[in-house]
Design a protein around this nucleic acid. Sequence first.
DNA 1: TTGCATTTCAAACATTTGTATGAAACTATC
DNA 2: GATAGTTTCATACAAATGTTTGAAATGCAA
Lengths: 229, 229
Amino acid sequence: MASDQTRSAILAAAERLYADRGFGDVTLRDIVAEANVNLAAVNYHFGSKDELIAELFVTRSIQTNRERLNELKAAEEAGGGRAAIEDIMRALVGPTLRGCLGPDREGSTAARFMIRASIESVPPIRRIKNREVDHLRKFAAAMRRAMPGRDDTELYWGLHFALAMAHHTIREKERLLRLSEGKCDLDDVRAIIDRVVTVSVMALTMGDVPSKPAARPVLVHGRLTRQDL
Amino acid sequence: MASDQTRSAILAAAERLYADRGFGDVTLRDIVAEANVNLAAVNYHFGSKDELIAELFVTRSIQTNRERLNELKAAEEAGGGRAAIEDIMRALVGPTLRGCLGPDREGSTAARFMIRASIESVPPIRRIKNREVDHLRKFAAAMRRAMPGRDDTELYWGLHFALAMAHHTIREKERLLRLSEGKCDLDDVRAIIDRVVTVSVMALTMGDVPSKPAARPVLVHGRLTRQDL
DNA sequence: TTGCATTTCAAACATTTGTATGAAACTATC
DNA sequence: GATAGTTTCATACAAATGTTTGAAATGCAA
């Protein structure tokens, strides 16, 4: 068997098993059994179990981050170098939410894996997440351009809350579903993104002159209307 | 040694070690060494390692939940049976945030333990968290009374987002601190609670007639002013 | 004290786990 | 087809871990 096939088989099997049963319950022996390869193959190809997990997570993270930056770039080009704050937030939370939620994603191994990675927090994944700060700074910079003069602190809190809503929705979607007795539609990803973006923008602009209704973000961009919520 | 002393010593040592080093890195042998008791004492007094962890978490959870319900009750009594939505949200996120953040809490074992429990997600703790839905329903009910006529879906999303911001702030406080280069003050718990409450109420009321500026939550209750944000 | 229940203790158990080894099989190049 | 490099494989290793055991110690009531 060609070397790449074994590598790929391990990656695929590992992602599937981790997605289904979580990191705590899956051993290397489970993985190699699922992949139909020898136990030693994991250490031969990846060095260690942790490096295997890291590679799985890095691969998916890079995909998401690339999508985010693509969306951000597109929004900035469309706005002539300065994107609207709403579009920036959309670029931030959209890829993550689309990647993990939605009816078609139910069967997606990648989606389930990323949800697991979000819920459980194993050392190799935590190490990678810690490097995410550099990536987020690009969004902070874009936000600063979109809202010049605004205090940086407000900006960071807005960014933080946007990620909070997105990740918590992914993490706790089962609980929200149970709490709301199915009333909250976790499959309508577009609506969820709109919702998160709207609240994020509200949080970011809440210091704005309250006497001018036109300054309200929901109205400014016109994309979000009441029925979207 | 009296039986209770051993039990207490194990609980205290376990909470301290879990708080400092996380669930993944602490073994029963570490705990009994720290507590100066015999290895078998854990299984004798608690049955299993998981039951020990469960007892630790349940104890702290009950404290938080009780504080939440007390605040809710106080708010409802003050409002003549119907609490203001802002106070309900404050009762929801206040105890958790106060319990885990703040300069004085830095050295608190309980606080660090709960942060760990929020970050890592071990099976016994996950099982307990799943039962939290019943507790949250009481807040959903209070919210329903505070905002009659509003669609339940909106209400659940608001509740969900409030918890999202609170828990994510606890979980990711280090990252937010690093991202903002210390600009976000994670020690000013009162300000953080105000912030989370304000955004939550905004999220809950954002469907309200946008043409009437007076309907904006920040202005309605008057307690939150611009300098709070 | 005697007797009974509770608690402590040292030691062993029984797995499970990731990793290492060294030979065998395979592949590609000359 | 011989050789060198790569990959696979069965097996062993070594260490860690939660749990159990049965005896010893302790506490307590009669």
